[in-house]
């Protein structure tokens, strides 16, 4: 079953066009990676799915429903969770309070269970539960951002650069957890990454974006082996 279907979506920031007709499809249970260079429009696509900026043309469907013109909070309440770029934690609120904010649109009866679930996923958050979000390390903040998004029991998790600015060991850990969320909790994941190597290894399928268009798509393994992709995104231009 198709969870997310993006059809010929155009979007712009004022006069600057960022997306020129993007088509993406995410099927239930998948991890789909979107890779591309800086400024290719990856983050814009994620944000357009959430309604900000709005798609100027095209159509976005979530579980068969047209969400193109819904306000952000309505889209989120339908089961799309986003861990936005730059994490955007509530840095003066404690870890638990951040997680409670993640659960605002969820059924409060699930709260304890969900809390236990993310604490099992990220034991470090249990240790830090009363600490302020802003005093966590970069890796812990990223974990908290993902955990917060998971608290709403999303059907689709959108991750924007989860490995940005993290040490290699932490990057590995983050991707391990993404895989675990996907296999154990059956959450469909659509992630945007510059770290193409890790992203494509964990993803079932991938899209490559350049200049606001999808230029290549395929299974994660095929894209990893693709000479074009290797040259542009993996071998560091050597």
């Amino acid at each position: 079953m198709t969870v997310l279907r993006v059809m010929d979506v155009h979007a712009a920031y004022g006069p600057i066009k960022a997306l020129h007709g993007v088509d993406v499809e995410v099927v239930e249970g998948e991890i789909v990676a979107l890779i591309g260079a800086n400024g290719a429009g990856k983050s814009t696509l994620l944000m357009t799915i959430c309604g900000n900026p709005r798609a100027s043309r095209g159509r976005i469907e979530f579980l068969g429903e047209d969400i193109t013109h819904l306000p952000t909070h309505e889209i989120v309440r339908r089961g799309v969770a986003q861990a936005p770029e730059g994490r955007r934690l509530f840095s003066f609120m404690s870890v638990v309070e951040n997680l409670q904010m993640g659960a605002v649109s969820a059924d409060p009866r699930h709260f304890d269970e969900d809390l236990e679930r993310v604490f099992t996923l990220y034991p470090i958050l249990r240790e830090r539960r009363d600490q302020r979000g802003g005093t966590l390390s970069g890796g812990e903040q990223q974990m908290l951002a993902i955990a917060r998004a998971l608290m709403g029991r999303p059907k689709l998790l959108l991750l924007d650069e989860p490995s940005l600015g993290l040490a290699p060991l932490l990057v590995k850990q983050i991707f391990g957890v993404i895989r675990e969320i996907n296999t154990r909790d059956r959450v469909t994941v659509f992630l945007v990454e510059q770290n193409a190597h890790h992203a494509l290894r964990v993803a079932h399928r991938g899209y490559v974006m350049a200049n606001g268009r999808i230029v290549l798509q395929g299974t994660g393994r095929n894209l990893l082996a693709d000479a074009e992709v290797r040259r542009a995104y993996l071998d560091g231009g050597r």
């Binding site: 952000t72 909070h73 969770a81 955007r88 934690l89 609120m93 904010m101 993640g102 998004a149």
Partner: peptide, 11 residues
């Protein structure tokens, strides 16, 4: 603290 984050959480 952060209106955009709030929106993305469904507030």
């Amino acid at each position: 603290e952060d209106e955009i984050a709030c929106r993305s959480l469904g507030v």
